[in-house]
Write a protein that binds this DNA or RNA. Structure first.
Lengths: 158, 158
DNA sequence: TATCTATTTATGGTATATCATGGTATTTTA
DNA sequence: TAAAATACCATGATATACCATAAATAGATA
């Protein structure tokens, strides 16, 4: 029995001509233990696919519901954008999901997908875009490093 | 057995000369599992049809009941409009509902309907109007992005 | 530590079930 | 009884579930 249910690590899998791709085994385990389902949608800010468990979206829906302004414009827009794009993806007995053409195009994925853990969520990138993104993030971190070091001492990773 | 009952994704189906249109399979599954029925009405704010399960309208009614005079006059008026317009739509064994002329006209739908998930609700648009609306929302949301992120932390995305 | 063995995981291929949709029959109601 | 609304049937396309094999990982033994 695991203690935490966080998506981690970076795993590269193949995408076949039908858009089928194996969800990393560890991700599957999380989804199963949570008795949940995978939800995927286009990232609003990056050329990648984002995924999470149903629970997370359910939480969002509940928040929106309880925020009294049933008739708010911004809320209306947000729900359209998020729920209109998201979809449930059940995996078969061999652990694969079938990504849609829309998602694949947004992430510029053809035959290889890179799963990147982000805790409660994860992302799916094309190898090329992920390489760029990782480089960007690392250089970004390096710039902020002096600040980070003020707090802890250099255990960031290895 | 699913845990969450959220309308999601964007699905395009045909509308025949009688106004018949297939409710997306996943939407049907939700309605069935909730042992509910589809309710549709003209959106108060947009040229589209809005739909939800009976439960949601039930909840709306309860809210009005319990809120003595806390609700503004305008909100009261709005809910009146909804209830005055709403109707139940049962689907046949093949999963189709028959939209009324009134609804179709309001949404300017002729032979194609676009279902857009909104969590507890969904909307039905003409392809043209939905294309415009989606574009509008995306640009609108991008403008407000900093504000959204200030409030919550990283729920919507990041 | 190195080698072999047993599971688990990833992936290609195929059969099956489901879904959307055109058409028709039956029921309702005005 | 005519017109409209509703329920049922048929079919092609699509998506899903299943089977088989290869690769990789973990575990055990020496």
């Amino acid at each position: 029995m695991r203690k935490t249910f966080l998506f981690m690590d970076t795993i590269t899998n193949k995408v076949d001509s039908k858009g089928r791709v194996s969800l990393p085994a560890d991700y599957r385990a999380i989804v199963k233990e949570l008795n949940s389902e995978i939800i995927c949608y286009r990232s609003l800010t990056a050329p990648c696919i984002e995924g999470c468990t149903e629970d997370l979206l359910e939480k969002l829906a509940a928040e929106i519901e309880n925020s009294t302004d049933f008739f708010s414009q911004t809320q209306d827009d947000l729900t359209n954008l998020i729920f209109g794009d998201a979809r449930r993806f059940t995996f078969d007995s061999t652990g694969r999901i079938v990504l849609t053409e829309k998602l694949l195009q947004h992430a510029a994925i053809t035959d290889t997908a890179v799963f990147v853990g982000k805790g409660r969520k994860f992302q799916i990138w094309s190898p090329e875009n992920w390489a760029k993104e990782e480089a960007r993030i690392r250089s970004e971190i390096m710039k902020k490093r002096p600040v980070l070091n003020a707090g802890k001492n250099g255990e960031a990773d290895k």
